[in-house]
Design a protein around this nucleic acid. Structure first.
Ligand SMILES: [Zn+2]
Ligand SMILES: [Zn+2]
Ligand SMILES: [Zn+2]
Ligand SMILES: [Zn+2]
Lengths: 133, 133
DNA sequence: CAATCTATGTAATAACATAACACGACCATT
DNA sequence: AATGGTCGTGTTATGTTATTACATAGATTG
């Protein structure tokens, strides 16, 4: 999916997410954008839907929250395939990474089972190095 | 975690989940158990919490739903480490599997980054072989 | 018995997400 | 210019998922 020009609301939502150190729920984003005229959850959800399509934002399923993609300038490949997330329970920091070996294993399983995967979620919850005692 | 005797409510919830072909939300479980005296969501959530602890039930994060564990009698290992799920969008069927190579890769990444993973979620959404055109 | 722990019941509320309808901007075709 | 279509938007209401707070009852134990 290529990334066309963003609309006003999309740009606002992406901006808020990009500045955040932590994942944000749709309602947290809404609160941050009240001063910009946001009044209702749908304004956030509609923007998020597009940003997810464009690959500019990821949804963390285990958190019902969203993060800006941090994969952009990586050397190994252009458009990421499956992305994995490590989420610190304490400080909330999210590390986005991908691993082609894991992709391969999952693809192999799917092929063998005749399963056609449209979307893959990989999320680690735990403690980041900075937060470990 | 060893599995002690289940309480009445835990047994009811596990029974409903075990009979289901598909994952169930807490509220769907609640509806199924109205005739057994269930009146409030908390009765379900409390039972689920314990069943998750015991490893008898898994939560599907991308669905906000729950399935009974189907990993019990597998040959390769006793207690599963990380479990992955393939979820058919059409028929709802869930296949639970695990892959030690994936575990190893994730463990390797975590070790390298100093991340201590407490819980890992792997979910594939797509179409099962029976549902593909 | 008193203290404590666990399971339970109930009501209220919080948090997350979508449906339905309306309106205006934009653009292509006529 | 008028028509129709798509898209983004605004607003209200509603649906779905999960938790907080408080109360009760039974089992356990010192
Ligand atoms: Zn890559
Ligand atoms: Zn941390
Ligand atoms: Zn195994
Ligand atoms: Zn299917």
């Amino acid at each position: 999916m290529n990334t066309p020009n963003l609309t006003k609301n999309q740009a606002l939502v992406l901006d808020v997410l990009s500045r955040s150190e932590q994942p944000m729920s749709a309602y947290t984003i809404l609160d941050k954008l009240r001063d910009n005229g946001f009044r209702a959850p749908l304004q956030v959800y509609r923007a998020l839907e597009k940003l997810l399509d464009f690959g500019l934002v990821h949804r963390l399923e285990s958190l019902n929250s969203f993060v800006a993609c941090s994969h952009k300038h990586e050397s190994c490949c252009q458009h990421h395939g499956t992305v994995a997330f490590a989420i610190c329970e304490k400080c909330g920091q999210v590390s986005e990474f991908h691993d082609h070996a894991i992709d391969d294993r999952l693809r192999g399983w799917a092929q063998q089972k005749g399963f056609k995967a449209e979307k893959t979620t990989i999320e680690l919850r735990g403690l980041c190095s900075a937060c470990m005692g």
